[in-house]
Simulated assay, not measured.
Amino acid sequence: MEEALTCKKCKQTSSLPPSAQRIRCLGCQTLLSLSTTADAARSTTQELRLDLSKKKTEAKDLCSSLRRKLPFSTTTPPLPPQNTPFASLHSEPRPGRRALLCGVSYKKQKHELKGTALDVKKMKLLLESFRFPQESVLVLMEEGGFLPPTRENIEEGLRWLVRGIRPGDSLVFFFSGHGKRQREEVAGDEIDGFDETICPVDFEEKGMIVDNFINRTIVRPLVPGVTLHAIIESCHSGTILDLPHVCNARGEWEDNSPPSGAYKGTKGGKAICFSACEDYQLAADTTLLSSDREMTGAMTITFIKAIKESQERKEKISYKGIMDSMHNSIKEAGKSGGIFAGIRRRFHRRILQDPLLSSTEEFDTSSEFNL
């Protein structure tokens, strides 16, 4: 069988007859032999191997350089934890006590808040004292492996809160974040002409959650024997659940029903809301009310403080007792005129807010508070 030899000079290919060891190139007449061709092949192979080895070394050095720049040493970044010991957004809620806790920090945004994550942590501890099972508490936060408090997740969380409710269930909705107000969506739906809103982490892109939606989603479905407590730490939060009765500072109930006559009640259950301030007011983040000078929502820390102090004294506390304690604590802190490390409202150095109590029905506020 003839072999083909390629000349290194002119690249002409010539056929080597059987048994022949050498032949002249048909192009440039250079003497070709099997040995020179083999040497050339070996040389080419060696060059390719050296080039490949060089590229492998360069790639290895590049990977090492990248690893040094990353906050971890593995080639694949670790995924954030997907499971927590708390409830899952898509799990079936258990009967009895359950809660939805939302803390929105708006990280790396111009609206960033410092106290909301701590508000949620303190509220979780409070719920433990009222025997809320951890697996029945759904948390939405921007840290700790929880789902972020996006508009979609908060709205789905509100639906989760009332899914499959039955008589005897106790529900809690806690929100700490920004709140705003806007012109009412439906004419005659608000006494002051404004809807109140809460702001998810993506509200600038996806929009705010309006009080009408909150009322429709977690107030209207409440059946007899079910009680909902909402604790809302945000600006303009007074009537954020659109409840038809508001308790004034004198402990008297006032009618907050829509002028249009639209029904804002339940199917027989009861909803009660503690709000950080009245609809026209702004809520503060402060270090003044925390014993260790941590940044918290003024309403959240005073609400928890009132209940904890009664628990330590092994005394019962009423709704009126909580409201009175909150008003007094905020009033005393406001007198100091201290500068906050971060405030939910930017242009005041003092706390000028009045926590508000509202409900779907009038009740004796001296009755015992319980969750």
Score class of each variant (00 low, 15 high):
residue 32 L to K: 10
residue 317 I to V: 14
residue 254 E to G: 14
residue 288 L to E: 04
residue 88 S to C: 03
residue 32 L to T: 02
residue 346 R to H: 08
residue 11 K to G: 00
residue 260 S to R: 11
residue 214 I to Y: 04
residue 208 M to D: 15
residue 205 E to C: 01
residue 238 G to K: 05
residue 347 F to N: 15
residue 43 S to C: 03
residue 129 S to N: 13
residue 239 T to S: 14
residue 106 Y to N: 06
residue 314 K to Q: 12
residue 353 Q to W: 01
residue 300 T to C: 12
residue 169 D to G: 02
residue 313 R to S: 10
residue 68 R to K: 05
residue 109 Q to H: 07
residue 43 S to M: 12
residue 363 F to Q: 08
residue 227 T to V: 11
residue 352 L to G: 01
residue 208 M to K: 15
residue 125 L to K: 10
residue 314 K to A: 14
residue 239 T to V: 06
residue 338 G to A: 09
residue 361 E to V: 06
residue 244 P to V: 07
residue 136 S to L: 03
residue 352 L to Q: 12
residue 108 K to R: 13
residue 48 L to Y: 06
residue 214 I to R: 00
residue 341 A to M: 08
residue 3 E to T: 07
residue 246 V to P: 00
residue 201 V to Y: 00
residue 321 G to W: 12
residue 81 P to R: 15
residue 156 E to H: 10
residue 64 S to R: 10
residue 74 T to G: 12
residue 68 R to Y: 03
residue 176 S to A: 15
residue 272 I to D: 04
residue 259 P to N: 11
residue 365 T to P: 00
residue 22 R to W: 07
residue 169 D to Q: 09
residue 13 T to H: 01
residue 73 S to G: 02
residue 42 R to C: 11
residue 343 I to W: 06
residue 279 D to T: 14
residue 338 G to D: 09
residue 284 A to F: 07
residue 181 R to T: 09
residue 296 T to P: 00
residue 2 E to I: 06
residue 354 D to Q: 14
residue 219 V to N: 07
residue 184 E to Q: 13
residue 129 S to I: 02
residue 76 T to Q: 11
residue 176 S to H: 05
